[in-house]
Every structure is written in C-alpha cells, then in structure tokens.
Design a protein around this nucleic acid. Structure first.
Lengths: 212, 212
DNA sequence: GTCGGTACGATACGGTACGTAGCGTATCAG
DNA sequence: CTGATACGCTACGTACCGTATCGTACCGAC
C-alpha cells in the first residue's frame, strides 16, 4: 500500500528533500516532452517505454523510477499540455458558462489532442489504475465544477427545478465525447455545432416565463 | 487489397464451396463461444490469441486462419450475442421508438456486455481495422435507422423543423455512452433514467402547439 | 574531505505474446 | 486416386515487458 518507492510524483518536489542525488527536472521535462510528441504522432498505438527512452536519450530504468508504465507518462504530459485550455470557464449564467466550457472542449478535441485523449481514455478501459487517474485528474474535476454551476443555475431560476445535474451534464458533454469516442468523427465538431447543441439542450431545461 | 487469404468470414459460407476440406463450423462456434466467455470474465484486458486457443482446445494457427487477431474474434462473438437485443425498436412515434432503443441499450450495457463493449470500442481506438468494423457493424447501422426515424418525426410534425438529425442522435445516445466510456459509471443507467433523459431531450425538440 | 544515500546510464536477464513456417494427418471435390 | 484445403503440433525470430546489477555522478551531513 504505502510503498515508499511509489513514483507518485515524477519529481521529489513537495516532499521534504530526501537525501542523495535529486532527480533532474531537466530529465523529467525531456521525457514528458518526448512522450507527448510520440503519443501525438502516428504509430502511437504501440507506444512503448523503450521508444520514449531511446527518443529522449535517457535510460529505460530512469523512466521506470518515475512512472509505472508509458501511459502514466503520457497522461502527465497530456494534462500539463491541456489543463490551461479549460481555465476560467465559469462565468455568468449557466448558459454562458457551458457555452464556454464546450467550446473549450472543441479546442481540446483538435486534431492533435483529440485523438490522444481518445487513446488515453481507451487505454483506461484496459488499465484500472490509468482509468482512476483519468477520472481523478481530468473528468471529475470538471464535473465537480460543472455541477456547482448547474445548482447555481437552478437556484437563480435560470434552470427548472427538479433537474438532475448529472443527467444535464451528460446531455451537454455526452454529445461531444460521443463524436470523439463512438462515432469517431471528432472533426465535425465546430463552434456553430456547440451553439446548436446549447440551444437544443437549454430549450428543454430552461425555465419558461409563466403564461399570463 | 483483394488478398485471397483475407479471412473476412470465419466460415466459407456464402462463397462457392472452394475445393479442399471445409472449415469446421463446430470449431468456429467453439472459438466464438470461448472468446466471448473469456472476454467477459475478468483479466480480459490481456486477452490473447493463445489463451483462447488453449481454452477452446484448438490450435493457435486455426484462429489465425479465420481472424487477424483476438479482438476481431471478440467482435464477432459480441455481435452474435447482442444484435438480437436491439431488434424491432422502430415502432410508432419518434418518442416511442427512441424510448425503446435507449432502454435496449441499457440492457446491452449490463454488467456482462457493457464492460465488454467498452473494451471493444477502446481497442478500436488502438486498432484502425477494428474501429472500422465496429462502425460498420454496430454504430452506423443503428444510426442509419435512427436517422430515418428522426426524419419521419420531422415530417409528421412531431419534431421541430430545422432539427439536425445527427445532433439529435448525439443528444440521445451521447449521454448513455458517456456513462459507459467517460464517467465510467454504467451501473447508474436505469429505465427511469431513460425516461428522464427522453423527457428532457424531447422537451427541447418537440413541436409545441401554436399559441392561440 | 569523507561518507552514506540516491539518481543516472548501461547492460543483461527471464518471461510472455506476437505472427509465421513446416510437417503430418484428416477431409472434402472431381 | 489426385489435388486442395483444414487442422493439430511444434518450433522459431522478434518485440517489449519489468527487474537486477554495476559503475559513476551528484547531493547533504559531519
């Protein structure tokens, strides 16, 4: 359980500086940069620890000291690259906030990052630990913030009472991930598409003025 | 392209009986049954051709004669098991049809088949050929039928004009696959959940009686 | 400066699954 | 019977896994 060798964080940063030679942050960054580049290039399905090590000019053992496998590396690299894209979307009404959030996701689902995120989630379904990390560091943080936006929208009267926040979020994000993961036509996602989606979804859950 | 060795169909059925010893349909069925059982049990992530061969009591080469890899086998086995579940759902109005279709999907996403479908789609994102097969034999056939239901609903006045069928289908199926693949909480899908989803979605796209 | 402790590079290892090939036997059509 | 194919069996080279070991490099403590 609490194995002292668990490579939870690639750098020793955060913990009290342990004795001995510290890990080189230069090496860490090189590995992350290389892993991201390889994961986004083609032939990425059979990405391997040894390829990353060779391409980064680093010993394979050095990778295993920091991460348990390649996809843990790729997840770190992906999140570092993408988290900034989805900042500060909770602005104004629920409708405005989710319009921003979904358009951020369209940018995240571009031809470089979209297929990579799809492969990361796909790998998650074959690797329990990776799935947990994806949930904890990508999916659930967004959902948690989004739920509070929904509750606020209900409280303010923008959204109807009795709306199930989780169902509502599925109706917003589901159609996006559906194209990324299921129908596999991510490239059809556009800003105009988001506007139409928001219109249709909100038409079903927005409070309507009481008939006179 | 037209490689005569392409193992498109496990049995020689359909083509004119080629000379030589015919493939044993008993062997084919045994392989499919074994593959489905192994793929639905745990430890299925590292399912392998050799395990299926051993468990089925069949030579590894026999599998490679019929399929290019394990997941092609699993897809065949899965579809044979599941296609019957989603028959005859196009009945009556669009609302009725999609209520049936989505509830069928809840049954398909049960604890046996749901995780397997998730893994098949996940593998598809790591294997182009598998993804094409999944699209051609599972996703797109349903979508094609569903689009015609939407168009009929628009024509009959049940659904508003200008509704984008693809967007609408994403709003219906997206939330389901979202729980299966993204939030990874397939077990929360229930019949009541579908009713609420249908209500919310249709509330946004159903034609409303013109105000007097 | 010395010394324990850790990181790093390099190399080697056993293990597993891949996909293919060769062989002998079994089963079909003509 | 002959030709053709399926099937089981065995063996092979390749790739990557994850681990271990060794010598060197860099750190803090004394």
């Amino acid at each position: 359980m609490d194995d002292p060798e668990t490579p939870a964080s690639p750098d020793g940063a955060g913990a009290a500086r342990s004795a001995g030679r510290p890990r080189s942050s230069l090496v860490t960054e090189t590995i992350l940069r290389t892993a991201l580049a390889l994961a986004q290039s083609d032939g990425c399905e059979d990405l391997t620890v040894e390829k990353v090590a060779e391409q980064a000019g680093v010993a394979k053992t050095t990778l295993y000291r920091r991460w348990p496998n390649v996809w843990a590396i790729v997840l770190d690299a992906f999140l570092a690259d993408v988290l900034a894209v989805n900042e500060a979307w909770m602005t104004g009404t629920a409708r405005e906030s989710f319009t921003t959030a979904l358009k951020n996701h369209v940018r995240i689902f571009d031809e470089r990052r979209g297929p990579l995120l799809a492969r990361i989630i796909a790998r998650g379904h074959l690797d329990e630990n990776l799935m947990e990390a994806v949930q904890a560091r990508w999916i659930q943080p967004i959902r948690k913030a989004a739920r509070s936006v929904v509750r606020q929208g209900i409280a303010s009267g923008e959204l109807i009472d009795g709306l199930d926040p989780d169902l509502f979020l599925d109706m917003l994000f589901g159609p996006l991930y559906h194209r990324l993961l299921v129908t596999n036509n991510r490239e059809t996602l556009t800003s105009a598409h988001i506007d139409a989606l928001i219109d249709s979804v909100f038409r079903g859950v927005e409070r309507r003025p009481a008939p006179p």
